[in-house]
């Protein structure tokens, strides 16, 4: 039995008057890595904002773990166990590494648990431990990317959403990030990976959707998508 963890049913979302998502259906299976592919401006980030209640959902329904979360306030959605590694990292530039990581555990009251998670993040990214007291805004792009992922892990989420983790990073760092994402998934966290980089993404994802101009134009298993016309022509042309 497959269990759908996150579902979007016929979701339309709009900025003031401009529709950016049109009747989108997406499902993320528990324990797996699902991906959403699409080029710049396709509406990928908007879809994430719709889940998080950061953009107006005009119609449709979003559920998480069987419960309706459509139009729920962002902090409430997050408290249900969803964490996001946003596009452009969005670390707190004037806080130190540690302070950023602690912000990631903002919803956690148990200091013991926070300490344990800090250790886990430092084990995953030894570099962050070296930079523990550095002001985040002064760190390199790669380090900030690690910090953003580490911060996302600090709430011990059940579902982790990544919005273009490869954006602006050197290829070697992109590969490292993808390995980390795979590892996070293997340790039990469901992942929803939003990317432009189709080839790498389809290597680690099990199921995926392709978004174009706010609409889902293709979906299928990673193998199906890799062979599909739309991916071959738009994303994997070599």
């Amino acid at each position: 039995m497959t269990e759908m963890f996150l579902t979007l049913e016929g979701v339309t979302a709009a900025y003031s008057n401009m529709e950016a998502l049109r009747r989108v259906n997406v499902q993320v299976e528990k324990g797996k890595i699902a991906c959403l592919l699409g080029s710049n401006g396709a509406g990928k980030s908007t879809l994430i904002k719709a889940i998080l209640g950061l953009v107006k959902v005009v119609e449709g329904r979003i559920t998480f773990d069987g419960e309706d979360i459509t139009r729920e306030k962002t902090h409430r959605v997050v408290r249900r166990g969803i964490s996001i590694v946003p596009e452009g990292k969005r670390i707190f530039p004037k806080m130190t590494t540690i302070e950023n990581l602690r912000m990631g555990a903002y919803i956690e009251q148990d200091e013991q648990a926070i300490e344990e998670r800090l250790e886990r993040v430092f084990e995953l990214f030894p570099r962050l431990e070296e930079r523990a007291h550095q002001i985040a805004g002064t760190m390199s792009g790669g380090e900030q990317s690690m910090l953003s992922i580490g911060r996302g892990l600090m709430s011990s989420p059940r579902l982790m959403i990544f919005d273009e983790p490869s954006l602006g990073l050197a290829p070697i760092l992109v590969e490292q990030n993808f390995e980390t994402i795979q590892r996070i998934n293997e340790e039990g966290t469901t992942v929803f990976l939003v990317e432009q980089n189709a080839s790498l993404t389809l290597e680690i994802a099990s199921y995926g959707y392709v978004l174009q101009k706010g609409k889902v134009v293709a979906e299928g298993t990673a193998e199906q998508l890799t062979d599909s016309e739309v991916i071959q022509s738009a994303y994997l042309k070599s």
């Binding site: 998080l52 950061l54 964490s83 969005r90």
Partner: peptide, 8 residues
């Protein structure tokens, strides 16, 4: 927005 994403 990032603060809200942390649950603030």
């Amino acid at each position: 927005e990032a603060a809200m994403m942390m649950g603030v």
